[in-house]
């Protein structure tokens, strides 16, 4: 039985007022900022928009952000699967603590994450002297951007896959083991088909987050123009340069990625549970 309309409730008029209020507030508060990005980005026409996107600095920022996501997302997927497999399919002391630990990056402000990394790998940081002696550059370079993005996105895949694996139990896997399957076969033939939509969903959310990370990357990247400027940092730079239309053009690419993520989410929502 799907949620039946309750036999009471505010009158039809009351219901209409509540729906109207909800729609009105959401249009003003959420839909308007979303629409405004494209309105501003295209406010001087297609040609200016194209020129803004094809500007070398913007292209470089897109490139850097893409590279970061290409490195971070697969690592995060591997971590998410490993964490979910360990926690959902086995019992061991400290499981609850591990689950909470995985969620911690959600509660920590990305700015704090950035500061943590700077204090570890920066010139005055704990590992700073050693890194310098070995001529390794982590801060103000791609490794730092990748590491802080890994911190910020750590829980994304695990938290989608873990509850599903837990709900599915271990019976199917145990049957496969009894029938003589090895670990890799069990995972590929039994577990993976069961979790693939949740996994894809987690990966999409992780990509959206990795691409949009601002605070943490802002601390560790050093904002070197044309070198360590990711796309969100480039948006800020253009905004500070008073190039609003350029900033909105760059922002529109990020918004498109966000919209794609939401559409994929809507498409997967039904399948995830199945």
């Amino acid at each position: 039985m799907s949620t039946p309309a309750p036999p009471y409730g505010p009158s039809r008029r009351g219901e209409r007022i509540l729906i109207g209020l909800a729609v009105g507030l959401t249009v003003l508060f959420i839909a308007a900022p979303l629409a405004f990005i494209f309105v501003r980005a295209f406010s001087q026409g297609w040609q200016v928009y194209a020129a803004n996107i094809l500007h070398p600095a913007t292209l470089h920022a897109i490139w850097l952000t893409t590279i970061t996501a290409i490195i971070v997302v697969p690592l995060n997927v591997a971590f998410g699967i490993a964490a979910a497999w360990a926690v959902a399919k086995h019992r061991f002391p400290g499981r609850g603590i591990l689950v909470t630990m995985i969620e911690i990056p959600f509660s920590i402000s990305p700015i704090i994450a950035g500061i943590c990394y700077l204090l570890l790998y920066g010139r005055q940081g704990l590992l700073g002297p050693w890194l310098q002696a070995n001529d390794l550059q982590v801060m103000f370079a791609l490794p730092g951007i990748v590491l802080v993005t890994m911190f910020v996105t750590a829980p994304f895949v695990a938290r989608e896959v873990l509850p599903l694996m837990q709900a599915q139990g271990t019976e199917q896997e145990q049957a496969a083991v009894t029938l003589g399957a090895n670990g890799w076969q069990v995972f590929r033939r039994v577990t993976l088909p069961n979790i693939k939509w949740a996994l894809l969903y987690g990966a999409v959310l992780c990509t959206a987050r990795a691409v949009g990370e601002f605070g943490g990357v802002s601390v560790v990247s050093g904002n070197i123009r044309g070198q360590t400027n990711t796309l969100p940092l480039h948006v800020e730079l253009l905004f500070n340069d008073l190039n609003a239309v350029g900033a909105f053009a760059a922002a529109s690419t990020l918004t498109l990625i966000a919209i794609v993520a939401l559409v994929v989410k809507a498409l997967l929502e039904g399948r995830k549970a199945a």
Binding site: A83, A86, I102, I104, Y117, G125, T170, Q174, N182
Partner: peptide, 28 residues
């Protein structure tokens, strides 16, 4: 423990958590 991969998966998880989250927070 019937299912394989416990050491590998827990090891990977702890390694990732330690290097990506724990050590930087400890540095702070």
């Amino acid at each position: 423990r019937v299912l394989p991969g416990f050491t590998l998966s827990l090891g990977t998880t702890l390694l990732y958590m330690t290097f990506i989250v724990l050590i930087p927070v400890i540095a702070l």
